[in-house]
Write a protein that binds this DNA or RNA. Structure first.
Length: 975
RNA sequence: GGCGGUGUGGCGGAAUGGCAGACGCGCUUGAUUCAAAAUCAAGUAUCUUCGGAUGUGCUGGUUCGACUCCAGUCACCGCUACCA
């Protein structure tokens, strides 16, 4: 190797365990472990040989393992991404080696705001920047050696992909929900009431339109002028847009909605069938927020006519269309009807004007005006102080016939229930606060159980304290003495009979606001018919399937203009005004939200290039459901709920065969930045102990005492010291120091870039480290020295097999072709068993610990049997595939190990012949003995009592009892 | 306020109710080296009168035996926020 530079000049210096040089250069012919050389080589090999091609046939077990596909941002991959991706990759490789047919695809969720913002800022079409970002993501993903079947790669922005997103939208448009069957059915099967039919074709069409799962409605929407779009409730955080934190206003606008509420019950119920973390299921249940109770009608017209109205109702029952002088409320506590001392309607309630008396009109108008201009955030800030205004009108409580005042307040939401409530201040905390505020009467009608502690019973009965629990009815006329549940049942039955109420179910879940006023999203395949003057006449139709996809037109200008008119309205005339069968239309110019594409991508992966169908039903049956789905908990509710909703509609329409798409779900935890110590100093550079520092509203650090600002200072580990469970300054122990790991963020400057880790340590080291950090589901701090640790382990694996002191690659002289001894066989089988079970349980950190134990053992062995080394390499392959392939190859195997058979173990060989047994007295270990495995209780007892030390301890004591767990321990109870 | 999660060495973390701290990082000592780095070996919870004693956020309980189960409590993290 004479011409090569000596190694020492080229190998970077590792100081304090960390790579100091950014650029590791290693000679390629020197047989050191060199991931920079072997990793790209094996990646090319896999790609060229299509090693991870999805099998066309599934004979035995199938395994569909899926990652939540990423949004390809301009920043590239974050270290959080490879965590879940490595976990699924390990499973995919493991299952392949176990003979399963594996589907393991990857793609990109590439529609969305950032690309469009970028387009506007740099005047580059979004498609162009998206493609660039995807290329970068692809490079990064491939550099990590994931075994995806790249032939199945899709992006939601591919025209051939969103063609089918549009197709699914048309299925939603063509479907109505049959309540009695709890099933979505074709709109052509919707029964049309005779009176509607009698009104003609247009009325029938309107009736149909109002029943479709995809429908247009006037909605109070979250309009964000800065982003130039309407946002879903979920995309608004604290009254600001989730993305960019711009203010959001509520304005009424005609929008496309998806009737997800129709599926609320099924979405909730079917959670029972999936293997998901209980926490996520609960989040979904809470989000759906099913509650049961009653709707009750309150007469709010002229008091003299109440008697007539009431009598009529018991004849006619609940009317199909509510009279204009009746307020309908929803309550979960119809048993508290006697305690309803006033009513509240939302500021947006349709009866506001009608119910407002002349005397109150100025105050009411001012209040409603203020409420509408208030963002949700501002409303929240007032939360402690309830606001409201009296309408001047009264309604009549139908049970006790008392007139009660009707108020308007923004603590009642127009979007939930009926937008009106009966207020029972004695038993609802919000009503109680409001009643206190405005001095409204409080009448207790539920007596808490006398057994209930922590309740001031007399205060509750006096209306001085609020009690929201269950109890016994009082002040409730004929119902006095009834328990809450029995009361509810009884009164609902009676209200129903009287025609003034009925049982009702409500959901927190709202219909899904599905349109966005942006360019970079799927166009709606909907056409609005134009009249002779070129104006929409209100009729609309679906784009015929044969004319899909509806591609995005080219625009010269993507900028939003601050009005809720979508950018597509500026599209060229040829695109905007198609003519079909001689009829001129205007295209729908809204686009779909980013969620749309991710709602069904798991289906397209099964049949990604099908130009005839969204998915071949045979393939769908073969691969669905997704067996394991791994992703971040941030998608716990929305993505998973939306995808499940679409899936159920597709199921109803016969497109898919399973009722749930994702059988098993696992959330990987968040990866935080490296542990940091933070001290604080005031403006005079004096240290301030951290318990006196707080964060103010603007996230600035201030002194708790006088709110003067303090400076956060990052400290080195050797400047701090631990005492008890706190850290303090070494130089001044009275100064407490904050120690914790923070979420990675550009602002904090603690973001770790996978490119750098791969360059410095290799992809296998990155993969292994991310799995070794801790349990997959836990959030855990990054540590550079930890990465270095697993890299050292890989170096040790390499040296266990390769002789790195030779000039050329050669096996370590300890590698021999001979029969292993008993200890070696035992270690091997123990390792196989542990690693196999750990991988199956997704407990990768402990599996890696088992690898390390194996390597620690065998590097001390003078003879390392080849057969055993080969088995170990196979065990290592799912986690660190590149080094495993290289070692496998070096040991003389011509083929990739990707489809080699996973090592098997023999149970009998996993245990040692002898076992050390602790002998306890009163639960404290007093001695240990080495005995043969499998001794009986009698034998163990004999051995324990015969032990010298034990005998010593038992002097003067009586043995009361001896507990023996064979092969584990002996506990002697004596006194 | 509500819901969920987590508390174990200097750090990340292991432990079917049965030897707490596997494995790794860091640190200490030694070998090797002209010297580093790398490597290899040994050690590394606390206190100790060297017999032991004490230790899994805290207080109780169940048990022969509790990091593990139960009740209460504190702290931190995450999500959520007037849903009648």
């Amino acid at each position: 190797m004479g011409t090569l530079p000596s190694i020492s000049e080229w190998i970077p210096v590792r100081k304090n365990g960390l790579v100091q040089s950014k650029h590791i250069i290693r000679s390629t012919s020197v047989p050191r472990y060199n991931p920079a050389e072997i990793e790209p080589r094996w990646q090319r090999f896999w790609e060229k040989n299509k090693s991870f091609h999805t099998p066309d046939r599934v004979d035995g077990e199938k395994f569909y393992v899926l990652d939540m596909f990423p949004y390809p941002s301009g920043d590239g991959l974050h270290v959080g991404h490879p965590e879940g991706y490595t976990a699924t990759d390990i499973l995919a490789r493991f299952k392949r080696m176990n003979g399963a047919a594996v589907l393991h695809p990857m793609g990109f969720d590439a529609f969305g705001l950032p690309a469009e913002e970028h387009a506007i800022k740099h005047n580059i079409p979004p498609r162009q920047s998206t493609e660039k970002n995807i290329a970068n993501f692809l490079r990064q993903l491939k550099m990590l050696g994931f075994s995806y079947d790249w032939d199945r790669q899709i992006s939601t922005t591919d025209v051939e992909y969103f063609r089918w997103t549009q197709w699914i939208f048309l299925q939603l448009y063509d479907t109505w929900f049959d309540e009695s069957l709890q099933k979505g059915r074709p709109i052509s099967e919707l029964p049309i009431p005779a009176d509607v039919e009698a009104q003609g074709v247009d009325a029938t069409r309107e009736y149909q339109d109002s029943h479709r799962l995809a429908f247009e409605a006037d909605a109070l929407v979250n309009w964000c002028p800065a982003l130039g779009t309407v946002l879903a409730n979920e995309e608004v955080v604290d009254g600001l847009s989730e993305r960019g934190s711009h203010p959001v206003q509520r304005i009424p606008l005609r929008q496309w909605m998806l009737r997800i509420t129709a599926y609320a019950d099924r979405l909730e119920h079917d959670l029972e069938q999936v293997d998901w973390p209980e926490g996520i299921k609960k989040l979904q249940r809470d989000w759906i927020g099913r509650s049961t109770g009653a709707e009750v009608d309150f007469y709010a017209g002229d008091g003299v006519h109440f008697g007539n109205w009431f009598a009529n109702r018991s004849q006619s029952g609940l009317p199909r269309k509510l009279e204009s002088n009746v307020l309908r409320v929803y309550t979960t506590r119809p048993d508290t009807l006697y305690g309803a001392t006033y009513m509240v309607i939302a500021p947006e309630h349709p009866l506001v004007t009608q119910l407002t008396t002349t005397a109150q009109s100025a105050a009411v108008e001012a209040y409603c005006q203020a409420a509408s201009s208030k963002s949700d955030r501002e409303r929240q800030e007032d939360k402690k102080q309830k606001t409201g205004v009296f309408t001047g009108s009264y309604a009549i409580n139908p049970v006790n016939k008392q007139p009660i005042p009707i108020w308007i307040a923004d603590y009642v939401l127009i979007s939930y229930g009926t937008g009106a409530i009966m207020a029972v201040p004695a038993h609802d905390i919000r009503d109680f606060e409001f009643a206190k505020q405005f001095d409204l009467p409080i009448v207790a009608v539920v007596q808490p159980s006398p057994k209930a502690k922590d309740i001031d019973h007399s205060a509750v009965l006096a209306g001085k304290s609020c009690f929201a629990g269950k109890g016994t009815a009082i002040n409730s006329g004929p119902y006095d003495g009834l328990a809450t549940e029995a009361f509810k049942e009884k009164i609902i039955a009676e209200l129903t009979q009287q025609g003034i109420g009925r049982a009702a179910v409500n959901y927190k879940l709202r219909d899904w606001l599905f349109s966005r006023q942006r360019f970079w999203g799927e166009p709606f395949p909907i056409l609005h018919e134009l009249d002779e003057t070129g104006k929409p006449n209100g009729k609309k139709r679906a784009v015929p399937e044969s004319m899909l996809p509806v591609d995005l037109p080219h625009l010269d200008d993507y900028k939003p203009h601050g009005r809720p008119e979508p950018p597509l309205a500026k599209a060229p005339k040829e695109w905007l005004y198609p003519v079909i069968d001689g009829v001129r239309y205007r295209r729908e110019t809204n686009t779909m939200p980013q969620w749309a594409g991710s709602c069904w991508y798991y289906l397209r992966f099964i049949d990604p290039r099908n130009s005839q169908q969204m998915i071949d039903p045979e393939l769908e049956k073969r691969w669905m459901p997704v067996d394991l789905y791994i992703g971040g908990a941030e998608h716990a509710v929305l993505h998973l709920l939306y995808a499940r909703f679409w899936h159920k509609v597709l199921f109803d329409r016969g497109v898919v065969s399973t009722i749930e798409p994702f059988k098993r779900l696992v959330n990987q935890g968040m990866i935080l930045g490296d542990m940091e110590f933070t001290g604080y100093r005031d403006s005079n550079e004096h240290w301030i102990s951290s318990e006196f520092v707080m964060e103010d509203e603007n996230h600035q650090f201030v002194q708790a005492t006088d709110r003067s600002s303090v400076q956060a200072v990052k400290l080195e580990p050797d400047q701090v010291e631990k005492a008890g469970d706190r850290f303090h300054l070494k130089s001044d122990p009275s100064i407490r120091i904050d120690s914790r790991a923070h979420k990675m963020s550009k602002a904090r400057g603690n973001v770790v870039n996978p490119d750098e880790i791969v360059a410095d340590y290799g992809a296998d080291a990155l993969r292994l480290y991310e799995m070794f950090m801790g349990p997959l589901e836990a959030s855990k701090p990054w540590s550079m020295t930890g990465v270095n640790g697993v890299r050292n382990f890989l170096d040790r694996v390499w040296r266990m097999i390769i002789d790195d002191r030779q000039d050329n690659i050669a096996l370590n002289e300890a590698i021999v072709d001979r029969e292993p001894d008993d200890d070696q066989i035992h270690i091997l089988h123990k390792t196989i068993k542990a690693v196999t079970q750990d991988i199956e349980n997704l407990s990768f950190n402990t599996a890696i610990a088992r690898y390390m134990e194996f390597v620690n053992f065998f590097t001390k062995q003078v003879h390392r049997p080849k057969s055993i080394m080969q088995q170990f390499i196979l065990l290592l392959a799912p986690m660190a595939p590149h080094i495993a392939e290289e070692l496998w190859h070096t040991m003389g195997n011509p083929n990739s190990l990707a489809l080699e058979k996973w090592p098997a173990y023999e149970e009998a060989l996993t245990v040692e012949a002898s076992v050390e047994i602790p002998i306890q007295i009163q639960g404290k270990i007093r001695a240990k003995v080495n005995v043969n495995r499998g001794l009986s209780e009698v034998e163990l007892e004999k051995i324990a009592l015969a032990d010298e030390r034990i005998a010593e301890f038992l002097v003067g004591k009586t043995v009361r009892k001896i507990i023996i767990v064979p092969d584990r321990m002996v506990n002697i109870v004596a006194n």
